[in-house]
Amino acid sequence: MEVLILAILVGLAVAAVRARDLMASVAILGGYSLMMALLWCQMNALDVGFTEAAVGAGISTVLMLAALGRIGRREVGPTRAPLLRLPLLTMQQRLRRARHLSRQHHRSSAWGAILVCVLVGGALLYGTRDIPQVGASDSPANRAGSLAEYYVTKAPEEVGPANMVTSVLGDYRGYDTMGETVVIFTAALCVLMLLRQARVRRGDERDA
């Protein structure tokens, strides 16, 4: 099941990058978020899954569409053949296409990017070897005497709610949650200062 979801995720990510129509990209990213929400639920992180579905698949898709309304929905740059037609191209056509693309970008910068990707990807893969299995009983998060054990055993008694996530977010870690709320408020504040103030200023100039 997880392998299936991960495969769909990779497919959606590739499709989102390849789509020339930014509107389609945004829609695909919405689907990507929905798959992520499924993955969270699969890992029993229902609160995270719910948030991902509401925020990632819901409101941020709408916000990105709103942003598209300002910048236009077409991506500018060299044209690309649709992915479906790629296998149909002959070898000669492919070579010509590759040469055409590489002429437009500087060749050395592309090799540098590939090198960085391989190095970073390799380092990350190497790092995952030390990550404990999800839910392993001897991982630092689950070991006896850990903070997680304290929350799981004491939260219903000390705080009350049946949902321990709420106890941790609102009570044990209430200070962090307050910071998150302020972050959301800051985002709205930034948009107000950038967009509304700019509009007000433009309006003043027109009136003057």
Partner: peptide, 18 residues
């Protein structure tokens, strides 16, 4: 119902805004 199940102010707020 954030106390008894998944949910809370953050998700509720996003749904309300939607």
């Amino acid at each position: 119902h954030g106390e008894d199940g998944p949910g809370g102010g953050f998700q509720g707020g996003v749904i309300f805004a939607s």
